[in-house]
Amino acid sequence: MYFCLLNLMIMSFSMQTIAQTQSAYRYSRSKSNLLFNAVTCLDSGVFSLSHCAALAGGSKTVTFFYNEDDNRCQWDCMFLYNENCTTLCTSPWSSYELEHVRNAALHKLPSASSVLQNAISLWSPAYATDGIIQTTGTEIFHSAQEVSPWLMIALQEISTISFLRVYNRDDYRFHDVAVEVSNSSEFVQCGFYKGPGKARQVIELQCDSRTVAQQVRLKIIQGTENYLNIPELEIYIM
């Protein structure tokens, strides 16, 4: 698939004026089929692909879509998982994502605060990184009920985090989740998702600023009777 790398400055679009800011987002055309459909998006006519990317970067969007035939842009979308996307589900739109090298979480063995009923064969943390997306039933990661359940993945090396992608279960328990990172024993919060996530929603998360880390943790930080359910977690690095 043609790979088009864009070196783009984040811009804000007001009426017909594009104002440049100091931050930079780098996007590239999606390298594989996206296993989700866009349900709602911001939608606008644009002058060019660069203009579309500027709108996406200005709203901290991970994935955006560009229709070259009509010069239209869709960004800041809500996605739902679609297991039937074995071919490009976005045609005639082309999809672009924040630049990344690979999913560093794939086949890593995560650790967790707990496992529901200690039933590792049903709810192991390893199911969250096995590359198999199950939004119903067992063979997903499922914590016990806690105040602040968490799931942590140690990357192979210290890496620049591009974005995270979480495939939500067919429920609404993914809420008030902090993205925490560490290069030692101390974790610091670099991002937050309020939620709650919709059933089967695909949630894309970023740190608030450029982040280099070796450990990444998702942790519910509000509420008292919480479960953390994650069918699949992807961590894309530079």
Rank of each mutant, 00 (worst) to 15 (best):
M1E: 14
L5W: 10
L6N: 05
N7C: 09
M9G: 12
S12E: 12
F13N: 07
F13C: 10
M15N: 10
Q16D: 15
Q20A: 09
A24C: 12
Y25D: 10
Y25A: 12
S28G: 01
S32Y: 14
N33K: 10
N33G: 05
N33M: 12
L34P: 15
L34N: 14
L34A: 08
L35W: 08
F36D: 03
F36W: 14
N37T: 10
C41V: 06
L42R: 06
D43W: 02
S44W: 05
F47L: 15
S50T: 01
S50M: 05
A53I: 11
A53Y: 07
A53S: 10
A54R: 09
A56P: 08
A56E: 02
A56T: 09
G58Y: 03
S59F: 07
S59Y: 09
T63C: 09
D69L: 08
R72I: 00
R72P: 00
R72N: 06
Q74C: 01
W75S: 00
C77R: 03
L80G: 00
L80N: 04
L80T: 07
N82R: 08
E83P: 00
E83F: 04
N84R: 15
C85W: 02
T86K: 04
T87S: 13
T90D: 14
T90Q: 07
S91D: 11
P92F: 11
P92E: 05
W93R: 12
Y96G: 04
L98S: 00
L98G: 03
H100F: 13
R102S: 03
N103L: 00
A104S: 12
L106Q: 08
H107K: 10
H107E: 10
A112G: 13
A112H: 04
S113L: 00
L116Q: 11
Q117R: 14
Q117Y: 11
S121F: 11
L122K: 14
W123Q: 05
A126Y: 04
T129E: 02
D130R: 01
I132R: 00
I133W: 06
T135R: 11
T135A: 07
T136C: 05
G137Q: 13
G137Y: 10
G137K: 09
E139A: 13
I140H: 02
I140L: 13
S143P: 04
E146P: 04
E146F: 04
V147P: 05
V147L: 07
V147Q: 07
S148W: 06
L151C: 06
Q156A: 12
E157R: 12
S159R: 08
I161N: 01
S162T: 06
L164C: 05
R165N: 08
Y172R: 13
H175K: 14
D176L: 04
A178N: 06
A178Q: 03
A178Y: 02
V179K: 00
S185T: 14
E186K: 11
V188D: 10
G191E: 03
F192L: 13
K194W: 00
G197N: 02
K198S: 10
K198W: 07
K198L: 14
K198F: 09
K198V: 08
K198M: 04
A199R: 13
A199K: 11
R200N: 11
V202L: 08
I203K: 01
C207K: 02
C207T: 02
D208Q: 15
R210K: 15
R210G: 07
Q214W: 01
Q214R: 12
K219P: 05
I221H: 05
G223L: 06
G223F: 01
G223C: 12
L228Y: 03
L228I: 01
I230K: 01
P231Q: 08
E232F: 05
E234Y: 04
I237G: 08
M238I: 09
